[in-house]
């Protein structure tokens, strides 16, 4: 029977301690014991004050996301031995999910997460009255949002999000997955308004594309893909005044005309008003050789190839 040291994040404001710390617990457990079962055994057998959210223990309620040796997981779905082999470490350190404020031990204040969820208007807003029976929806149209419908709001993506780490106001991956779920729902009548709502400051264009949300989502929702699809919807709905959208568009123009990126031209297109204020940065970049010498960079020879690539990409969206 394996034995493991669990190094659990402790924060117990009731006891008057203002600082968090880690406490080690030793536990003998079965080969297939899940991280949640191990924590619950510690809670039962060693220390009843350990606090953790959990309920279904079958990876559907979304309560028990936490960090195991630095990676966000659903505790009920992850076996202790797998944490050890994945991380190459014998000790299993358990921390609360990231980008949140702890309330007690592994329990964090989820308020910002739920507020942002509500901010994307996560409900169907159809045009016109409903028919007597069900609305008829092609199977393929319903399947387009099947992946995002699987989101259990566990906040694993939110925990791993690098954009949130830099900007706590960023709406975040889960909420945008839900945003896409409604924006792409044939029955919804707010596609354009949703595109506007999800653009702008802290919106879809602020995603850093680090892909951690896709990587760590326990349900295969791929929130980054949803954010990307929301970007496409913004273009389709001509909601392109956002700096992020303009930046994307500038990429495309640059590729079309010159066959490669021309950063000197991209910056002013993205932000015509703000760009001049970035002149000192541009100068420093130029000094370090990070900018092309002339704004009129030479064009790549085989631009037809580039155009073909762009066409291919467009067709797959």
């Amino acid at each position: 029977m394996p034995a493991t040291t669990f190094r659990i994040f402790r924060y117990q404001p009731d006891s008057g301690e203002t600082e968090s710390y880690h406490q080690d617990f030793q536990l003998e457990h079965g080969e297939k014991t899940t991280l949640l079962d191990a924590i619950l055994r510690i809670q039962n057998e060693q220390d009843g004050t350990v606090a953790v959210r959990y309920s279904c223990r079958s990876a559907i309620c979304g309560s028990c996301a936490c960090k195991a040796n630095g990676k966000t997981v659903l505790a009920c779905m992850m076996q202790v031995e797998h944490v050890k082999t994945d991380s190459g470490q014998e000790i299993v350190q358990v921390d609360p999910i990231g980008n949140f404020t702890p309330i007690k031990d592994l329990v964090v204040d989820m308020t910002p997460f739920w507020d942002k969820f509500k901010a994307v208007k996560p409900f169907l807003i159809p045009d016109g009255p409903a028919p007597e029976k069900e609305r008829l929806v092609p199977k393929a149209a319903m399947e387009k949002i099947a992946k995002e419908s699987k989101c259990i709001l566990c906040a694993a993506c939110y925990s791993e999000c690098n954009s949130l780490a830099a900007d706590p106001e960023f709406v975040g991956p889960a909420a945008f997955a839900w945003g896409y779920r409604f924006a792409a729902d044939e029955r919804d009548g707010q596609r354009k308004n949703r595109a506007k709502l999800y653009s702008g400051e802290h919106g879809v264009w602020d995603c850093t594309r680090c892909m951690f949300c896709n990587e760590r989502c326990p349900k295969g929702v791929d929130p980054r893909d949803a954010i990307e699809k929301l970007g496409s919807i913004a273009f389709q709905e001509k909601v392109t005044s956002d700096k992020g959208a303009r930046h994307a568009k500038a990429f495309l123009i640059s590729l079309r005309t010159g066959g490669k990126l021309n950063e000197i031209l991209i910056a002013p297109y993205t932000d015509p008003i703000g760009a001049p204020f970035n002149a000192p940065l541009a100068l420093r970049m130029a000094q370090k050789g990070k900018l092309p010498k002339s704004p009129l960079t030479h064009r790549v020879k085989d631009r037809d190839q580039v155009k073909k690539l762009i066409k291919n990409v467009k067709e797959t969206i």
Partner: peptide, 23 residues
């Protein structure tokens, strides 16, 4: 049936038939 239609009108993502688009 009324409750199913109500859920559908509220946006439930029911699996659909291949051709008709019905639930």
């Amino acid at each position: 049936p009324l409750e199913i239609y109500q859920l559908e009108h509220w946006g439930a993502v029911f699996s659909r038939q291949e051709d008709s688009g019905k639930i």
